[in-house]
Write a protein that binds this DNA or RNA. Sequence first.
DNA 1: TCTGGGGTCCTAGGACCC
DNA 2: TCTGGGGTCCTAGGACCC
Length: 423
Amino acid sequence: MYALADCNNFFVSCERAFQPQLEGKAVVVLSNNDGCAVARSNEAKAMGIKMGTPFFQLRPLVESGKLVACSSNYTLYGDLSERVMRILSGTLPGIEKYSIDEAFFSLDGIQPEDYRAVCVDLIRRVRRGTGIPVSIGIAPTKTLGKVANHFAKKYPGYRGVCVIDSDDKRLKALSLTPIDDVWGIGWRGAPKLMALGVQTALDFTRRPEAWVRSRMGVTGVRTWKELQGIPAVSAEREERRKSICTSRSFAEMITDKAELRLRVSDFAGICAQKLRSERSAALTVGVFAHTNRFRDDLPQYYPFEIEHLDTPQNSTQAIVAAALRSLDRLFREGYSYKRAGVVIEDIVAADAVQLRLFESEEEREMRRRQDEISAIMDKVNKPGSNLLRLATQRPGHYADGIRRDFCSPLFTTDWNDLLEVKG
DNA sequence: TCTGGGGTCCTAGGACCC
DNA sequence: TCTGGGGTCCTAGGACCC
């Protein structure tokens, strides 16, 4: 049996963990630049506030005191996520972190009659240790675990734990699950299925496999099997990420190439830092820039350019230089850029780098020095800081230039601490 | 005025091979 | 008038997840 532990309204719960006065109130957490709602408390959901609602539409509610808005504070959420995961993995073996706020684990070795008690206790300990409320769904497949988790959250009677351990329970649960709530059926698939007469997860499982295959592809068949209790979603993810992306929307639109170069340098620098922190190196550096897609009155442009390195690298200098070459190729005057990003691909282990056959002595020496400089930067810079940086990068904190009008204090990280030089 | 960010996997079609 | 068949690999774009 699989168990899925999922934090309730995670970002909101993180804010509440340090601001108990938010308990019981309608709260939303906003995306970067206070753009739109990315997390909602149950009270906010009950008010009909949808995921992704732009903040300017919520502002009246905030001003009249009916709703509290928080700017997002990802450092805080990452920190609390780590603590939650630590408690979970300290209790049960074989935990698989699936996202910032959820993890799968196996219940092998636990007697079925003890599932509930073990999980209720786990929830209590996470709550006591972090302040974060968690729900757990238990079922023979991950997709059914998601379904069970849904019920655990929805009905207080379950006290946070819902078990699907018989066919009766499975069929009952599926009949109560709308098809668009099913994990793996997205915003394109759901309307398509509903038009074909599939309203619930149960309807879906009653279609023949070939019917599903021809309309929803192999991923649809996987979901179809999982809902019947046949595991079809692979157990483990790879330990090394296949791509790394750093991108931001800008508070203001950027028309100036020099300004865009600064921002892209920052993004590339963060990517390089992430690469090194995972002891990885990469062969491909891509850059994209977007105009503001909501401004019909302005010309639109969505370029993407890739640069291949001749040997995998992870130094800030190499990654930033490659990104800037791509930017120079894609940049066009006359557009107002609202968002840009750097994407790293073809990632390999840094200690297994395949060297070039005909690399010159000078090239090798340059790479060695760049790696050395990056190592020093990593020693001096704390996460999120670029105290020591390239001249092509902006001074200051990475969050500069992002609007965060409703940011909570940095409860688990201190500003001065970020600026303190190690050693 | 104001609309997020970071990932994975699948597929169809093209390039290339013999 | 006539122009093979069977593969693999790569890539861009789409769909999905949180």
